[in-house]
């Protein structure tokens, strides 16, 4: 684990750049991580997914599968991949300041 500076805030991250302490997260950090991962601007649809991931993680202790993300976030799977071409669950977790999802689905 290392400490890095994102959007002028020192945060703990793992080797892949996922925040390891979700309390250190804020919206500026989210925007900076998105930019660094090829998403120039977070739209309302991006935010819907990011907040869903984050809320689910904070309430249940684990990130949702891509299946439940597609069914319950209000954003269908096709659109999820348009919003986050490099992997919706992984990238939305990273932007939302929660650990990388561990599930296979």
């Amino acid at each position: 684990m290392t400490i890095t500076l994102i959007a002028d805030a020192p945060v703990d991250v793992d080797t892949e750049g996922f925040l390891t302490n979700s309390e250190q997260w804020n919206e500026q950090i989210a925007e900076a991580i998105a930019k660094a991962n090829g998403i120039a601007e977070l739209t309302d649809r991006h935010w819907l997914v990011v907040r869903f991931m984050r809320d689910r993680y904070l309430t249940t202790g684990s990130a949702p599968s891509i299946r439940s993300l597609g069914k319950e976030s209000g954003v269908p799977v096709k659109e999820l991949y348009q919003l986050f071409p490099k992997g919706p669950a992984k990238l939305a977790a990273k932007i939302g300041g929660i650990p990388k999802p561990k599930g296979c689905i």
Partner: peptide, 18 residues
């Protein structure tokens, strides 16, 4: 139980994912 969909839904999911 571990959120793996039945085959018809899974085929659709995989196709929708690109």
């Amino acid at each position: 139980k571990i959120d793996i969909p039945p085959i018809p839904e899974f085929v659709e999911l995989v196709a929708d994912s690109g």
